[in-house]
Amino acid sequence: MASLVSTVGLRVGYAGRPLLPAIDLAIEPGQIWALIGRNGGGKSTLLRTLLGLQPRVGGRMERRAGLRVAYVPQRGDHDPAVPGRVRDVVRGGLDRGWSFLKPSALLDRGAVERALAATETTALARHPFATLSEGQKQRVLIARALAGEPHLLLLDEPTSAMDPVNEEAIFSLLHDLSHQRDLAILVASHQMSFVPRFASHVVMVDKDDGLVEIGDRVAVLSCTACRRKYGDLLPHA
């Protein structure tokens, strides 16, 4: 089967200047990728390039035809001044391309209910989004992404500002979603503790050291350069 997204010699950066060495990767259905590294190390640049939000500096990137991608930005990107109940927020994930021209009644409202159910947020559907806890907000934003029934879901720091219990719950949810829906997931995070239990593949980046390690979890977590860089901070596979 063709990869959902594949890159060959992909260079990411700004104003034509590459930030990281060339990147070759291929994301397949059902895989969970962890994009890890310290803050300011190039994770967001790579993530935004993979999402198409930022132009690549060089190399090739291909997407499978008809690929549906969804994105969960950092929680802080959601403006609390914008009013919305949970169901309204999730419904925002339904529109693709020019579908906003269709009357709302023609949208697949069942997809909203399925996304709420999958993230266990059905009971919150009528609550104002702004009044939810951090963990609940993240679940709702994941539901919003799922409403469009994507093949590939990318999340930026989904557990920042979360306590360990909620963090565990969010990664368990992502793990279950990936298995139930054959959904490919890529999570960008500066935290590494979740990697051994939840990720099948890892991209580790650090622009200061020109470090890019890509591969399955065991290979990356045991790579010599990564061990030398992070020592005991890097979990064992």
Partner: peptide, 23 residues
């Protein structure tokens, strides 16, 4: 009245809207 969902998406969740292919 017709385009409000598009205007709202472009105004309040720009990056997600771009990823979803909205103009």
């Amino acid at each position: 009245l017709w385009w409000w969902r598009g205007f709202a998406a472009a105004s309040f969740s720009r990056d997600a809207a771009r990823v979803q292919g909205l103009p």
